[in-house]
Design a protein around this nucleic acid. Structure first.
Lengths: 215, 215
DNA sequence: CCTCAATGTAGACAGCGGAAACAATGTTGT
DNA sequence: ACAACATTGTTTCCGCTGTCTACATTGAGG
């Protein structure tokens, strides 16, 4: 690789040179990028390894060097989806105001928009067939939900939430938002209702988990 | 195979006669039955029209007379899934006690168990690609959710729930349960937590949507 | 009884995922 | 510098699938 592509390669960027030679150089990430586009545009069912190979300009068996089979590619997509979701949630929390209810609302809204903006990807992320690759996915999923569990713990520490297992309490909230987005992505309810429903869910959650002052 | 053929046939059930001649007689329902079994055992991805035809003992092109393509069969499965779900919810409500919170808990629990007992089917029901068959699915889905919306309205009438659009208020509850089951079906959380999480969700819902007496 | 629509069959086709053998290119030890 | 070696891409082949078309069998209604 020390002949002509030295400069671009040094920057860590995609070479993307037109006259490609025998070795692509970045086939794995090129496959993932193309797969993510195809996933968004045509859904996971229509995703074909041969299509991706054609689109990239490589032989149909080349992807096999990077993904053992089709499901391995889908697993990798799911994993990267959780990592991107984790980023999204982290930055939403970083930019959110200080008060607890605002942080809950902002993070939950960020999740909801990520889920509806990446409908096919979300479906993939939550239908990970239990495979050898699954542990990596579960780990990435854990990383995505970590900040949210922390948020619940902070709410409890500040007395805004009732005590109890943070995972159990928080899970119900995230399940709610996930369910809402699933129904929207499945065309069961109109997408315009998203923000309204999320607001309702957050309000119900805050009221339903407030510490009891006058029992 | 089955000894009670004549009796069941009288009830409008599947004849299922062994010595089949040129015409099967019930191929459509036989296909749906076999498909539902395959769906439960191997998932929707592994469902093959040719497999079903082989299993039933019919030529590989025969299913085409009853389902325009593979997706049409999946759509039919999704529709019948919603119809069965509607039955399940109706009978759960019929057997439930009179008080509102018990009715909410029982119906929601029935939904949750249906969803986890029919994981692959639920996935199918909620990922109906928008197709010509979709309206039928949406209609069946509406029929399933009808009794639940009614339940919310009754709760409001009895003063157990805050006023407001019943669909919006109830949707949040059902989205919560659906989200919980999705996470369980996707192995994100342990299945043993189902009842506990559902209880938590119902409790949060009832507390979060109670009318405000002392504002 | 005869026609006709419904239903099942047979055969063909292209596309796919996967496996194996082969070729070109980097990499590394000496 | 150069010879093994590992990595990555190619080619070829296989069985399977969904779908299409032409044909066969059957049952129902005039």
């Amino acid at each position: 690789m020390l002949s002509k592509e030295t400069l671009t390669a040094k920057l860590g960027a995609v070479p993307e040179a037109e006259p490609r030679s025998y070795h692509h150089g970045n086939l794995r990430t090129a496959l993932l990028d193309a797969a993510e586009r195809g996933l968004r545009e045509h859904g996971a069912d229509q995703l074909s390894l041969r299509d991706l190979a054609r689109e990239i300009g490589v032989s149909h068996a080349a992807p096999r060097r990077h993904f053992a089979d089709r499901q391995a590619l889908l697993d990798a997509l799911a994993e990267s989806g959780f990592l991107r979701l984790a980023d999204t949630l982290r930055s939403a929390l970083a930019e959110a105001a200080d008060d607890f209810s605002a942080r809950v609302r902002d993070s939950v809204t960020a999740y909801a928009h990520f889920a509806t903006d990446n409908a096919a990807l979300l479906e993939l992320m939550y239908t990970s067939k239990h495979r050898p690759e699954a542990p990596r996915i579960a780990e990435a999923a854990g990383a995505a939900f970590g900040p949210l569990i922390e948020l619940i713990e902070q709410g409890q520490a500040h007395g805004a939430l009732e005590p109890g297992d943070p995972e159990r309490i928080g899970l119900v909230l995230y399940a709610t938002v996930h369910g809402i987005t699933t129904m929207i992505n499945g065309d069961m309810i109109a997408g315009e209702l998203l923000d309204e429903l999320v607001e309702t869910a957050v309000a119900q959650f805050l009221r339903g988990t407030r510490p009891l002052r006058n029992p």
